[in-house]
Amino acid sequence: MHEMALAEELLKISDEAAASAGAEEVLRVGVGVGWLLQVERQSLAFYLEALRRDYPRLEHAVFELDEEAVRVRCRVCGEETEQAGWGFACGACGDRDVEVVAGDRLEVRDMEVRTDDV
């Protein structure tokens, strides 16, 4: 259910970025969906579709939802490794003293927009 709130934020950010670039229309929005957030992509896509009528620039935009794996940096050996499941541990030395460096964000990464010639 929090997908609705998240979809609203993604639309707001996309629209703001398009407006500040002087874009008339957004063609594509690349979204990174961090695995750690437990966002249901189908539900997110549904809300993006349902809520975008409030954002004329985004009417025909294609939202590409790309899942981003969790990566952790080990505080002991310094290695960065990808994680396959919960109970994070360093993939190199096995220590559990790790910090998450990727996969914990839902972000608008990039966009393709159309600007009219002046």
Binding site: S14, A17, E24, E107, V108, R109, D110, E112, R114, T115
Partner: peptide, 9 residues
């Protein structure tokens, strides 16, 4: 018109 690529993050 022009197509532009925007990095947002």
């Amino acid at each position: 018109h022009q197509h532009r690529h925007l990095e947002v993050h």
